[in-house]
């Protein structure tokens, strides 16, 4: 929750939805009425659509932004919000939404939205791969990710995690905050 009296230009808020599951994607498909099999049928998505497995609905990960904005405004209002769909979000991804304050005019606060998907690829320890994720097994990562510098590493308890971190939804919003 952000209070108008405390908000500052440049302030950033972060929300993470961890480990998107196939069940979550199916639940959204049923709730939204978008039952396109590329989101809900592994065989169709792979064999017919050539997508190497199901992908999440763009409007689901946009929905995660909406959910975060309602938490931030609390008793205020979302006046306008939106953005662009980039790349694909898949089961196993973490989705991180960053909201940065860019302008304050009265009780209207403009924000920049940058949402990223984080896709685990593999964990290595002592030069050996100790864990492979679906992205590695199904070839979800390509040369473009390497060229664009989307492949990152970080230390986790099991070893060194290699993961892809890329922008999935850049956007903006205008919020009306309460005191």
């Amino acid at each position: 929750m952000v209070k108008l009296s405390e908000v500052k230009v440049g302030q950033e808020f972060v929300d993470v939805v961890k480990n998107i599951t196939r069940e979550q994607i199916t639940k959204y498909g049923n709730a939204s009425g978008d039952r396109n099999p590329i989101h809900m049928d592994e065989k169709f998505a792979t064999d017919v659509a050539g997508l190497k497995g199901v992908i999440a609905h763009g409007l689901l990960w946009m929905g995660f932004v909406g959910k975060f904005l309602t938490q931030l405004v609390d008793n205020g209002k979302i006046i306008k919000w939106g953005g662009q769909f980039r790349g694909q979000v898949r089961p196993g991804d973490d989705v991180e939404t960053k909201v940065k304050v860019t302008k304050i005019e009265g009780n209207k606060v403009s924000v920049e939205i940058n949402q990223f998907s984080s896709t685990p690829i593999k964990v290595e320890k002592g030069g050996q791969v100790v864990k492979k994720f679906e992205a590695e097994e199904k070839g979800w990562v390509d040369e473009k990710d390497v060229k664009e510098g989307n492949i990152k590493t970080k230390e986790v308890p099991e070893g060194t995690l290699t993961y892809r971190y890329r922008l999935s939804f850049p956007g903006t919003a205008i919020l009306e905050l309460a005191n």
Binding site: G58, L59, M62, K77, I78, I79, K80, W81, G82, G83, Q84, F85, G171
Partner: peptide, 10 residues
């Protein structure tokens, strides 16, 4: 390909 979406509640 769905590329962008925006909602305006003013």
């Amino acid at each position: 390909l769905h590329t962008a979406q925006e909602y305006d509640y003013k």
